[in-house]
Design a protein around this nucleic acid. Structure first.
Lengths: 197, 197
DNA sequence: GATTGGATAGAGCGTTCGTTCTAGTCCCGT
DNA sequence: ACGGGACTAGAACGAACGCTCTATCCAATC
């Protein structure tokens, strides 16, 4: 649980964003005090309000974007691991389970906790979370479309795939077990295959 | 968004628990200050610490239990609505979508937000959340077992069904649309049917 | 070498947090 | 009538919150 990035290799702004993303991934928005944030980012309050005049909220939006890209990278890697989309989705659950356990069940979805907490409270942050979900759905849909799935079925499946991944990751985290994610992987593979072209 | 229960028809303890459950459903644990809680429950700080010497944390555990039962009731109703388990699961998503929209997208799962926020921070609350998830899985598994599904497949399916419901409800909430839930319903029905005995 | 502006630094502001504490009210058994 | 436990009531407390503010540092530029 060291600071995210070393002071010499990343700019202050980037360290703030990465640290905020990691802390919000673990505890959401309200559980991430700005003072702890700047301490772990090896920055100061002055720097935070210099780069983010909008304060904690503006930083949170940037952090959600960062988490969005981070999760998207894992998703891309898993989806590219197998040509068959059903097997690819199952591969993603394997990657997620691995990363989750390796972090001692701390690194769940970098967006979910904040999304649920800020719904109807911080519209900017909520919008960033919604964008992240849509982004991930697009990645899954693209894989299905590339495999010859019909447009509508591909888009619908992508929604459910991402939703199930989110739910299973949360349950795996709360129960500290890979099982929910791996079970979701098997079931999603079966579901995706059942729509095969 | 009136107070949960009227002062004359419910005891103070019950009003506190219901109000806490509702507020935590909307914003999680940290977004629910005790003073607002007490005000909306038409109670006072003295009453809160009389009934819950463990303070906010102890009340939160009771609130999660209440939400657990509330969600379980909806789950039972949906599952009982149809004899066929696949159709029954789809019926549940319909009920969830209806309730969510009727609340102006506020009343999502009464446990998820708190679960993600307290993981690794408040073990008592986290344990209550884990118990709720297990409880819901049991209800789904019971329906499948009663319909003749093999033991292992019924239990595995129950895990994924509940996870997908959670994920879809969250996405429906964040995007303010019934679609994710209803799509999940169709897919879950297909998945459950594909394991039919 | 002086000037300048981006970046750093953290003390301190007003507010709100969860909790404690004392005082008071209510109601029931005797 | 009265004693006593259950419950109500909210002022007050220390800690922690997000944020503002002034001061300072340090390259780049003239």
């Amino acid at each position: 649980m060291a600071a995210t990035g070393t002071k010499t290799e990343l700019g202050t702004r980037e360290r703030l964003v990465r640290t905020a993303s990691r802390l919000m991934q673990h505890g959401g928005y309200e559980n991430t005090p700005v003072k702890q944030l700047v301490r772990e980012a090896q920055a100061t309050l002055g720097s935070l309000y210099h780069f983010f005049p909008g304060g904690k909220q503006e930083l949170a939006v940037a952090a959600i974007h960062f988490g969005d890209e981070e999760f998207a990278a894992l998703l891309r890697a898993g989806l590219a691991a197998r040509p068959d989309p059903a097997e690819a989705v199952e591969a993603v659950t394997g990657l997620l389970a691995e990363a989750l356990e390796a972090s001692d069940w701390r690194d769940g979805c970098p967006v979910t906790a904040t999304a649920l907490e800020t719904v109807g409270r911080l519209p900017d942050v909520q919008a960033a979370c919604a964008r992240a979900f849509a982004h991930w759905q697009e990645l899954v849909a693209a894989k299905l479309l590339a495999s010859g799935y019909p447009e509508q079925e591909a888009r619908d499946l992508a929604v459910t795939v991402v939703n199930t991944l989110e739910g299973a990751e949360m349950t795996s985290q709360v129960t500290q077990s890979r099982t929910p994610l791996l079970t979701a992987g098997r079931h999603l593979a079966r579901l995706v295959a059942s729509y095969g072209p």
